[in-house]
């Protein structure tokens, strides 16, 4: 393996360009050939679109007529666009139910599965099943289950003497119905993450705690939960990103309705681009979405850093 020379012992430190040329001469040329397809793909399908998205933010364009430069009007419009903010608030309402429900239920099941349980891999496999299946299938199926008049969920509710629920037809319910479905679809995945986290807790800690007379509930609250904090954070970050990426669920189930109560940011972006042909504005929404995702992940990671002991 050729060493890349830093300082030539005879000629001493060379100028930067000469050093680079020297290093290039010593480089493995096969390396360049091997990364070439990736670099070309990156330039065409990541770098170019990224720059183009940025240009589009300052333009009005319907693809058919020539592009028109309009300064920061798309950004101004975004801040005044009540429908866009409705979509953001819908996302927050979705997360307000989805995140706590997801954490409590998947942690509960993971804790049970982590105990001395028979058929563990059967249970784990059953919970994981919806996660591998296309969101299109899950939404089409759940739309049927959620049907107000003919759905089996309301059939079960009326059988046990409760009132039927207007799952997808009432603006007050619809986004939460979607949140319940999303929790169901992704729970197996989060159970597996929590199980991995639980298996990383050193058993000595529990032994020491029980010698000190801590019961199992105290052990859970004082040992398990604090040590699961990194997993918790991962769950929150991933489900937040998932919430901001909602598309197929409202697209199939409600079209964003009733009364825009399930309109998601991505569905709004899609409609602006492909129903109204506002490419510039749609790109602006794309940037806003990316910034929100970055901010949320950044804040959540910061929270973890300060809370972590030592």
């Amino acid at each position: 393996m050729p060493e890349i020379a830093e300082i030539d012992p005879v000629r001493g430190r060379q100028p930067l360009f000469g050093r680079l040329a020297e290093q290039y001469r010593m480089s493995d040329k096969t390396g360049y050939v091997m990364v070439l397809p990736y670099v070309l793909h990156f330039l065409l399908f990541t770098a170019y679109p990224l720059i183009f998205a940025f240009v589009l933010v300052f333009c009005r364009w319907d693809i058919v007529t020539p592009m028109e430069f309009i300064g920061i009007r798309n950004i101004q419009r975004l801040f005044r666009d009540a429908t866009f903010w409705t979509a953001v608030i819908n996302t927050l309402r979705f997360l307000a139910l989805h995140i706590p429900l997801q954490i409590v239920l998947s942690l509960l099941i993971a804790v049970i599965l982590n105990g001395p349980i028979k058929f563990r891999s059967f249970f784990r496999g059953a919970f994981f099943l919806p996660f591998v299946i296309s969101g299109a299938v899950v939404t089409i199926l759940w739309q049927q289950l959620y049907s107000t008049d003919a759905g089996i969920l309301n059939l079960i509710l009326t059988r046990i003497g409760m009132q039927p629920v207007p799952w997808l037809t009432d603006p007050a319910w619809a986004i939460y119905s979607i949140a319940i479905m999303a929790t169901w679809k992704n729970m197996g995945f989060y159970i597996v993450l929590f199980l991995a986290g639980l298996q990383n807790v050193p058993p000595e800690l529990y032994e020491a705690a029980s010698i000190d007379g801590a019961n199992r509930y105290q052990q859970f609250w004082r040992i398990t939960l604090p040590l699961l904090q990194p997993v918790m954070l991962l769950v929150v970050i991933l489900s937040t990103i998932g919430g901001f990426s909602l598309f197929i669920e409202p697209f199939v189930m409600t079209g964003g309705g009733p009364a825009e109560s399930t309109l998601s940011v991505v569905l709004y972006l899609y409609k602006q681009a492909f129903q109204f042909l506002r490419m510039g504005y749609a790109a602006t929404i794309g940037f806003a979405l990316a910034i929100m995702i970055f901010l949320v992940t950044f804040i959540q990671r910061r929270l973890l850093d300060t809370d972590q002991p030592a």
Partner: peptide, 24 residues
């Protein structure tokens, strides 16, 4: 640099590139 590029690219949300990729 190429490895850093890979790590950085992974952080870009797909929805950001949706419109320009479609136009491409």
């Amino acid at each position: 640099s190429i490895f850093n590029l890979v790590l950085l690219t992974m952080m870009i949300p797909g929805q950001l590139l949706l419109i320009p990729l479609y136009i491409l």
